[in-house]
Structures are given as C-alpha cells and as structure tokens.
C-alpha cells in the first residue's frame, strides 16, 4: 500500500505529461511527422505489434548479452586491479582515461571488426557498459573498511578468506550502482549498434520509419526503447534489493 502511495506522484505526473502531449498536438496543429499525437503512437504500436515485438526481443537480447559480458569482464578486471598493485597503477588509469575517447566515434570500428551481425551490436553495448561496472566495482573493493580487514587478519584470515568474506561483500553496493548505470545505458548502446549497420532491431526500425517520415512509428519505437531501458534498470534494482535488502540503505 505504501509503495503504491510513494509511486502515485510520478504516475500522475506521467499521465499529466501524456495529456499535455496529446492536447498540444491538437491545439497547435503540429504536423504528425514532427510530433505525432500520442494516441496515434499507441495506435501505430498496436498496428505493428507483432513486428515491434520481434524487433524488441532482438534489441533486448543484444543489450542483455552485452550487459552480461560487461559484468563478467568488468568484475574480473576489478578483481585484477584489486589484487595487483601493478594493475592498479596501469590498467585502472587506462580504463578511466579510455572514457575520454568518444564511444560513438569508436562504434563504427566495431562494425568493421565484428560485421553486420549481432556481434557488432553486442560489442557497442560492451563499449558503453564495461566502464561503469569495472570502475564502480574496483572502487567498491578499494573502499572496503580497512579496520574490518585488519580484524579478520588478526583472526588468522588468509588471502582467499579476506577476499570472500570482506572485499567481496564490501564491494557489492558499489557494484550494483555500476550495474544500474550500465543497465540503463545498455539499450542506447544496442540502438547505436543497430543504426551503424543492421537488418533488425528497434534501432533499425526507428531509423527506417524516420526515413519514411512516419512520425508515429518512430515514436512507437522510441517509447518501446525507453520502456526497455527503464525495465532493465528496475530489474537491476530488484536484484540489488534482493541481495542487499537487509543492509542499511
């Protein structure tokens, strides 16, 4: 009950924005290829439900696969950085510095390397999502309470025990922060990957619709992409709550 009450303002706000959208397109006579009426967007969604569903699943698959690989590689890099001071001095700054490279400019290279199939899309998603996972997890390891570590050492804990019973649980909140960020931007990565060269997916769908000046179809695709991003974020948040729920927020 309380949860519903907490979410009520945002739900009402979204309804208000939707109403404003719908009304302003009518009142100001905005052409459909600029901003279509919201009801038309939903109508377009309904009309092409089957097709959109197929593209949706493809894009979601790319995002999830890329995300999974990023989590795997990101956590492993973080462990490497944490366990070797040489890696901390070389790999970590390199990862941080890599963020100054415009990922969008790098993305076409992924197409050159991995082709027009799913590989290049997943690669772009990884390009987007590896960083937040790796850096947040590494920072989480780093921020583990040193005194707790000392205490465990005074009880005879070895390297492996220190990692499993101290570092790993300490880094979890920070890891989940990274995961949530990565989940939210993974959809953007997949869409960009599809734009650069692909046959299917919601990115391709919206691009084609835009070329045909089909405003309602473009917005239908964009809305679905947003839903996907929000859903992935919420999924990450739910996992976070399940794992960390009992700790103090």
């Amino acid at each position: 009950m309380k949860q519903v009450k907490d979410k009520l303002p945002i739900l009402l706000f979204i309804l208000l924005l939707a109403a404003l959208w719908e009304l302003s397109t009518i009142v100001f006579h905005i052409p459909a290829y600029i901003v279509p009426r919201l009801s038309d967007v939903f109508a377009a969604m309904g009309r092409h439900a089957g097709l959109l569903g197929k593209h949706f699943v493809l894009t979601l698959g790319e995002a999830l696969l890329g995300l999974a690989i990023s989590v795997l590689c990101g956590v492993m890099s973080a462990i490497w950085i944490e366990s070797s001071s040489l890696a901390r001095k070389t790999i970590y700054p390199l990862i941080v510095a890599s963020q100054t490279i415009p990922i969008i400019a790098l993305s076409p290279i992924m197409v050159m390397w991995f082709g027009y199939e799913i590989g290049s899309k997943v690669a772009v998603v990884i390009l987007f999502t590896f960083f937040p996972v790796a850096v947040n997890t590494a920072d989480g390891f780093r921020a583990a309470d040193k005194e707790i570590g000392e205490l465990l050492r005074s009880m005879g804990a070895g390297r492996a025990q220190l990692f499993l019973k101290w570092k790993l649980p300490s880094a979890l909140p920070s890891f989940f922060t990274g995961l949530k960020m990565a989940a939210a931007i993974s959809v953007g990565g997949a869409t960009l990957g599809e734009w650069l060269g692909g046959e299917s997916g919601l990115g391709v769908y919206t691009k084609r619709a835009a070329n045909m000046l089909r405003g309602d179809d473009v917005f239908a695709g964009v809305l679905l992409l947003s839903f996907m991003g929000i859903a992935l974020f919420i999924a990450a948040q739910i996992i976070e709550r399940l794992v960390l729920g009992h700790r103090r927020a």
């Binding site: 000392e150 205490l151 465990l152 050492r153 005074s154 009880m155 005879g156």
Partner: peptide, 11 residues
C-alpha cells in the same frame, strides 16, 4: 596464522 596470530582483538 598467515596474517597474524589468532588472538581476540577487539578494536
């Protein structure tokens, strides 16, 4: 132990 001697240290 590898990290220290196992005594009851209360910080």
């Amino acid at each position: 132990g590898p990290g220290g001697r196992s005594i009851g240290y209360m910080p």
